[in-house]
Amino acid sequence: MKNNFYIQNYCHVKDGEVSVNGKTVFKTSETDFKLVMKAAYKKLIVDYPKFFKMDNLSKLGFLAAHVLLENEKEKNIALILSNKASSLDTDRTYQESIKNAEQYYPSPAVFVYTLPNICMGEISIKHKLYSENCFFVTDEFAPETLSTYANELLDSNKAEKALCGWVDVDNGKYNAFLYVVAKKGTFVHSEAEINRLY
């Protein structure tokens, strides 16, 4: 028999604002992505200087995950993330560094972020998660894909909880919506409810 699961908490990061369960925890009028991330870091994260070495996608995912997981005790939390742009934002930066044969200086620090799942690695390192993870690249936010995968992992006891959602950055535009699926929670874990919260 399949179990019923719930959304324990959720967050949004977009338009200079970070909110948790609909409540604003950080807001700035700044529009530049890097400056927004820097200001949000100083307010919400504070003591993790490696944050500034991350690419834009990892910063966004890391920040969104941080506000949901900072007080979380459970460690068997699967990561199921998705976006449209994959790591294209960083891929372009890297391509710029190798396009000129006479000025061919590929940056190792940029290269290591030319995959979207590195974002999940950064989250896992910070929160000491040794769990299942998967990153879907889809044209649009696809709650059915995420919920099916999360339900399967929780039903089969491969994870106790799942951090799911959308984390997308490209050309200065950014949007993150993450939520934690658990056996107890406030909202029913259904496609309709995920869409409503998104």
């Binding site: 200087p49 200086y105 590929p106 940056s107 190792p108």
Partner: peptide
């Protein structure tokens, strides 16, 4: 300074560039 292995590679690139 707490630099890591990726930083070491960046420093090698910096020496060259």
């Amino acid at each position: 300074l707490g630099l890591d292995s990726i930083d070491a590679l960046e420093l090698i690139v910096m020496l060259d560039k």
